[in-house]
Design a protein around this nucleic acid. Sequence first.
DNA 1: CTGAAAGCGCTTACAG
DNA 2: CTGAAAGCGCTTACAG
Lengths: 340, 340
Amino acid sequence: MKKKIITLKDLAKRLNISPSTASRALNDHPDISIETKQKVKDLARNLNYVPNLFAKGFRSHRSNILGVIVPNITHYFTTTLIRGILEEANLQGYKVIISESNNDVKKQTEMLNTMLQFGVDGVLMSISKMTKDVDDILKVLNTVPLILFDKASNKIPCTQVVINEEEAAFNAVEHLINIGKKRIAIIKETEYSFTSEKRYHGYLRALKENNIPLDNKIVLSVEDISMHQGKRMTNILLSLKEKPDAIFAITDSAAIGVIKTLKKLSIKIPEDIAVVGFSNSTNSQIIEPKLTTIDQPGQKIGSTAVKQIIEEINSTNQINVNKTIEIKTNLIIRDSSFKI
Amino acid sequence: MKKKIITLKDLAKRLNISPSTASRALNDHPDISIETKQKVKDLARNLNYVPNLFAKGFRSHRSNILGVIVPNITHYFTTTLIRGILEEANLQGYKVIISESNNDVKKQTEMLNTMLQFGVDGVLMSISKMTKDVDDILKVLNTVPLILFDKASNKIPCTQVVINEEEAAFNAVEHLINIGKKRIAIIKETEYSFTSEKRYHGYLRALKENNIPLDNKIVLSVEDISMHQGKRMTNILLSLKEKPDAIFAITDSAAIGVIKTLKKLSIKIPEDIAVVGFSNSTNSQIIEPKLTTIDQPGQKIGSTAVKQIIEEINSTNQINVNKTIEIKTNLIIRDSSFKI
DNA sequence: CTGAAAGCGCTTACAG
DNA sequence: CTGAAAGCGCTTACAG
């Protein structure tokens, strides 16, 4: 039993008014009298009238759909970003189409294009690492507002919503210095990763401001940061003549690899070597000792990005907004860097 | 610089044919000559013609958008489901709108309704626990195909894509029996959780087939299963006169709570008490000893659900499909139940 | 304060 | 094999 779908025309006919009036009444157009508005709205409610968003969107060139592209949806932090996006979008009457780029630049471009084809009103993107050529992304900017969140790039002139990467890393490293560590290694990614570079700058600044000389032997870069790489890098660090007394890994998974390796070798954490990660993943509380790490407020980043893009969608002036919104992070101190 | 958008009419005008013909050519209508088709397709490619899916959808009552509702997007397993859904949808030219119900039945209904309003061609849903009243869900069935995946319910007559919950639990418990355990406790949810009940039946069957008597003192039910509850329940079990020699928790997080508590009390795992979880979450490999658990192929469930719903969307007969597709799981044996 | 009419971009039954 | 015409449900400039 298919139920009959109520249209604007149906409402109008029942009330002996024109569809134009019915439309305007529902949209609170100032021209319409209060009584008419009331009548129309009441009937709409009673008949359970549902506006056909397709017709609406088709007519007004608005879909009320946002596109979201992320590299990898299975990362816990990514899901908190998405949660923030979904919640805020829902509040504002938008729906969200999600795609994964799998850190594949070609797929990223493809996703971007099908998003546009589906008529999204704006795109929120966390860019794939290794995105060197940004031309395809720049093209989008002519069509629809774009906002980069979390994984951003200063090569793209659009609003960016990110965490204070540099400061977060600075705080993490300074914390290690404060507990008495003097030889702090870092495990980071190669220079193609924007976030990794920013965290590295925070590391450098913390050393400099505390008069600790930089030693490139304990600055390790890997292409694909992971638990496995954390283990490998730890073994390299332990093979040095002058071993570090602390390791700052720029992701939790790498930091967990570090901890696992140290434990296997019965190296005391944090006494011999302290460990700090980045992300406050769920794993960071499961590992023992629990991992000191940076909490990134994913939900807030997501909701901020949505608020921002809706503003840009509704703004009439076409000037490309090009600002960076930085969300504050929190250092969470746990057992891997602090003995109770 | 807004770029001019190419429409079907533009294509037609350039080729001196009618828009109708252009439309048919692009859609490979059998009536159209091969040469015309070729001409139109070539021009479309050259001009970078992008069909307006809004107009298309508006006209044909098809959006090529699927709605997905899950209780909680931050669970790792849920993200693997979503990944499977996204991949298969992408292959088939569909986009996916995602919403979270947060295990809130009211929100679930609300999401369901806005999904329909956005003109989705079908809905894939993992239902919120505590969904007792299914009337609102049943209403959807009149409008658009619905498929339940992972968290399903036999009260709703539609296709269900689930894992072999009962058998998975059976295998887990039988494994414990095989390694010599005789007094196996279970930590499950209350009877409102469909999956929990099925896993419980697997537990019961494993006991029965191995002639182990059921003891209700070691069958514990909680409303909201979690690591915290795992800890609490473990303490209850340890306070019994006859302690269990194995604990089967129906989620990994609860199992991790069990392990943490046992370790704190220096109870040997698995010698004194073996532990088995369910899900193969990332955490299950971080905890030490590593957790024996059930791997659920999330991606396969997701892709299967998409294949199924697209079939139903395209099928002309309106008979409500009401079949259950069971996806096989795998018991992953790790240190929490097996000493190397 | 309200209505008639046009049109958004496409598809499809009808006609030839 | 192709075209003219209608229409999907809505909004909005124009007219009164």
